[in-house]
Design a protein around this nucleic acid. Structure first.
Length: 350
DNA sequence: TTAATTTGACCCAT
DNA sequence: ATGGGTCAAATTAA
């Protein structure tokens, strides 16, 4: 699969302010998990389930370890944090720079920096299995709320939001557009992460939801709804700080087998992951991309600190929320933390 | 009846 | 003025 991953201009609160809370929360979660494991009937547990507990624990312990060793270097490297996804005012409009209110501005200080939801783009081929000129399901449920003819594009762009936007305030949206060159290829832009329950319920390694007959029928009406995420993957970021924020996040991980590195021309010189690319899947836990549920391969977790000896994390409660909600993805592939010379890095793509 | 999709109108940025 | 994103009423489907 090819997907472009774009995250821009995170600004926000210091991790130091929230570190104790995060540590407490992680510790409590770890204890609860151990209790759950104790009460779990191992005999009735699937093989996957048996593997899950130690992996979850491992993730918690790694995260706690990293948090506790966090020295504060991260603040300077990471200009800020992810936006507060739980904020119901955090609308996709904020990305598009078309605020209808000031609610999408972060903080109370005079900086008035705009909240920006994480954005990444994937390209997916229409699913051949269903015989539909549509990509396959990505595991999340979406509701279409608009369609526009885009200037210069042959095909309209469909606008989707999370089905649980109203019920759970999930701000995830996506835009799907058939590419001009190859009508079997769709370009899917994801805006914001899922904060809804369905995101947490997406189990690692679990097959993506197969569209029910009803879904298929309904979706036949729409020229674009389903995405085949088993195509090439390509992720990019425009902003160094953002790249750092992603890669230094405690929840950032690669699937054991990494990503095919496909860069645009201007990015080809800064491809930091090419040496890691081994197959078709990429996992980025901070953003539980549908891609994350597609990989089952395993690798021993490798943790590498930053060159400055510290670890940098995203800050704010949003990040912790994201982290926890992204756990299933992180668990699917055991975390591989990256070591990277940020001083020589000026962008990346997958 | 409920939920999802369609589509024209509206809003905002450029 | 124009393009892109979202809203919301109407329509469709289960």
């Amino acid at each position: 699969m090819r997907s472009y991953f774009t995250m821009e201009n995170y600004t926000g609160i210091s991790l130091l302010d929230q570190k104790p809370l995060i540590v407490n929360q992680l510790t409590e979660a770890k204890v609860l998990l151990k209790q759950l494991e104790y009460h779990f009937d191992a005999a009735a547990t699937s093989t996957t389930g048996k593997l899950l507990f130690p992996r979850i624990l491992s993730s918690f312990e790694s995260s706690l370890s990293m948090l506790k060793s966090e020295t504060g270097h991260g603040e300077s490297q990471m200009n800020g944090s992810m936006p507060t996804a739980a904020n119901p005012n955090d609308s996709p409009r904020s990305i598009c720079g078309s605020p209808r209110s000031n609610s999408n501005l972060i903080g109370e200080n005079s900086s008035k920096k705009r909240k920006v939801l994480p954005t990444w783009t994937e390209q997916a081929r229409a699913c051949e299995h269903t015989g539909l000129e549509e990509p396959v399901e990505d595991g999340y449920s979406w509701r279409k709320y608009g369609q526009k003819d885009i200037f210069g594009a042959k095909h309209p762009r469909g606008y989707y939001r999370c089905t649980h936007k109203n019920a759970q305030g999930c701000q995830a949206t996506k835009q799907i557009q058939r590419t001009d060159k190859d009508t079997s290829i769709f370009r899917v832009m994801y805006i914001g992460r899922h904060t809804c329950i369905q995101a947490a319920h997406l189990q690692p390694g679990q097959p993506r939801k197969i569209p029910e007959q009803r879904d298929v029928k309904r979706r036949k009406k729409s020229s674009e709804t389903l995405i085949n995420f088993e195509t090439d993957s390509h992720i990019e970021t425009k902003d160094l700080g953002t790249a750092q924020a992603i890669l230094k996040s405690p929840s950032f991980s690669f699937s054991p087998a990494s990503i095919p590195i496909l860069c645009t021309e201007e990015e080809s010189n800064s491809n930091i992951f090419s040496s890691l690319a081994t197959d078709n899947y990429f996992v980025s836990s901070p953003i539980p991309s549908p891609t994350t549920s597609g990989s089952n391969s395993l690798v021993s977790p490798t943790r590498v600190n930053n060159l400055d000896g510290g670890t940098n994390f995203q800050t704010s409660e949003y990040d912790f929320c994201e982290f926890t909600s992204a756990l299933p993805s992180a668990l699917d592939s055991q975390a591989l933390y990256l070591d990277w010379d940020w001083d020589s890095f000026d962008g990346f793509c997958f």
